[in-house]
Write a protein that binds this DNA or RNA. Structure first.
Length: 276
DNA sequence: CATGCTACCTGCAAGC
DNA sequence: TGCTTGCAGGTAGCAT
């Protein structure tokens, strides 16, 4: 589910409700997530105070202060189907509500994840040294990500440009939806070898990726089936999708039927006329 | 190193 | 209607 805009929407939605709050209770209903919930998570978290929420790639970072957790960070990934939302004390958990952080004002931060590809992990030390974060490329909305970087890293690469754009070492946060959309916006065929695309076209692709991600954040992300932001509302970017999930339908630009192929084991939809 | 395939898990839609 | 199959927003790990 969540690509960068959905994770950022979640961060913004829950931040005002959790920042500065103390964790009073931790309820784990299902510890078998992609990474098992640490057995001592509750012991470590109770009494800790949550600092300023951050996001790195599709990871949410909750810095902790106080008690055993001073200087530690909760690292949270939503996987394919995870969502975090704020619910009121007493609201009954539903199926796949795996974890609750009960806060000192009575609100609950509740984690829901049908497929259980997400995880929560407790990091004692430096977040940037974590193996999952260490090799990540730049944030797509930062200045460090631009066409020049795409051009430089792609020289000699035979992989198709779409999986190249989705490579977290190149740039983070661009998943299957937004890679498809950015390539459409830039007019680039997703099958084209990454190493055979000009600097000019990469400049357009980087700009398109920034534009589509920023627009999706503004719309609260894309809800395909079950994504909800931190306060429970769906994202509205789905209406703005030009190609993702629209194979067989006409291109909004030229009317040509959009084509579905598989690239890097992922479904890819593109316009055979607009994208060359 | 670059690339490709598999696995992790549940729910849903399409096809028979 | 009911069963089976394939596919889904991500990523790590392993084989080639």
């Amino acid at each position: 589910m969540p690509e960068l805009p959905e994770v950022e929407t979640t961060r913004r939605g829950i931040a005002p409700h959790v920042e500065g709050r103390e964790i009073g209770e931790v309820i784990v209903r299902q510890s078998r997530l992609r990474v098992p919930v640490p057995a001592d998570l509750a012991d470590r978290l109770v009494g800790a105070r949550i600092g300023s929420l951050a996001r790195r790639a599709k990871y949410l970072l909750l810095p902790l202060a106080g008690g055993d957790s001073a200087g530690a960070t909760l690292l949270w990934h939503l996987g394919m189907s995870g969502s975090l939302r704020i619910v009121r004390l007493g609201e009954l958990p539903r199926k796949h509500d795996h974890l609750d952080l009960v806060l000192d004002d009575g609100a609950i931060l509740r984690y829901h994840d049908p497929r259980r590809f997400g995880f929560v992990d407790w990091l004692a030390g430096s977040v940037e040294e974590d193996s999952r974060l260490r090799r990540l490329g730049p944030e797509p909305l930062s200045e460090a990500f631009d066409g020049e970087r795409l051009y430089r890293l792609s020289r000699g690469r035979r992989v198709a440009v779409k999986p190249f754009l989705m490579d977290n070492a190149v740039v983070v946060g661009v998943g299957n939806i937004y890679a498809s959309e950015a390539l459409f916006m830039a007019g680039i065929d997703p099958r084209r070898a990454a190493g055979r695309i000009s600097a000019e076209r990469y400049a357009r692709l980087a700009a398109a990726a920034k534009e589509v991600l920023a627009a999706a954040i503004t719309q609260g992300g894309t809800t395909l089936r079950d994504f909800v932001g931190g306060t429970g509302e769906p994202g509205y970017f789905k209406q703005r999708l030009n190609v993702y999930g629209r194979h067989g339908e006409p291109c909004r630009c030229c009317g040509t039927e959009l084509r579905l192929i598989t690239l890097g084991q992922r479904a890819s939809v593109y316009c055979p006329r607009c994208q060359t």
